[in-house]
């Protein structure tokens, strides 16, 4: 799955590089937006089928029947999705810096944290909605209609934090990182409360 996501993001990088003339547009001002928009779309493409690909062989029934907590299945899916996302981000973020000639000011830790928390936020929502919509007739529509508005806070906080981190001199991203942390925590806690009802539908 991470191969498809990485390939998708690389394609997006190329397309943006051609769509935005690097000589005329001040790329630094839109760079964080392009970065997170690509990650969001890649996450959507990768995760929309997290549960759906269990359907053809009906393996979900097997998973539900297996001894153990249903929560474990959800958390396992979340963890694997997060790892895919993290690998994809690690591979493609340098590409963004190279192709958009974004100056790098050496804030490794802060940028790494933002990437991890933002990736977690994207993946949490996508996995939760994928679980909700798995058995529905119009699963893809349900998934997209709800995913985009719910991801907006993640997009706002990550883009603002990245802007602060990459600006010269370095700004203060902590307000946005705290907000992102809170949002991540909410959507980690909500499935724990709702997991009993997530799939019986």
């Amino acid at each position: 799955m991470w191969v498809a996501m990485t390939a998708f993001v690389v394609m997006v990088v190329f397309l943006f590089a051609f769509a935005l003339d690097t000589n005329r547009v001040r790329l630094a001002s839109v760079f964080p937006g392009i970065l997170w928009m690509s990650f969001l779309l890649a996450g959507m493409i990768g995760m929309s089928r997290t549960y759906a690909h269990e359907i053809p062989e009906d393996t979900l029934t097997g998973l539900v029947l297996a001894p153990g907590d249903r929560m474990a299945i959800f958390l396992a899916k979340l963890t694997s999705a997060f790892l895919f996302m993290a690998v994809m981000e690690l591979l493609t973020t340098p590409l963004f810096f190279v192709f958009f000639s974004e100056p790098w000011n050496g804030e490794w830790i802060l940028l790494g944290m933002t990437l991890a928390l933002g990736g977690l936020g994207i993946v949490e929502l996508a996995t939760l909605l994928s679980a909700v919509s798995v058995n529905l007739k119009s699963a893809e529509m349900v998934f997209m209609l709800l995913l985009f508005p719910l991801e907006i806070p993640v997009l706002i906080t990550t883009v603002e934090a990245t802007t602060a981190i990459l600006s010269n001199p370095v700004g203060n991203p902590w307000l946005w990182l705290h907000g992102l942390l809170a949002y991540d925590a909410i959507f980690l806690a909500l499935p724990l409360l709702l997991y009993e009802y997530l799939w019986e539908v």
Binding site: I55, P56, D58, T61, N135, K137
Partner: peptide, 8 residues
């Protein structure tokens, strides 16, 4: 029997 046709 819950099969392919019943999902919808």
């Amino acid at each position: 029997v819950r099969g392919q046709g019943m999902q919808d």
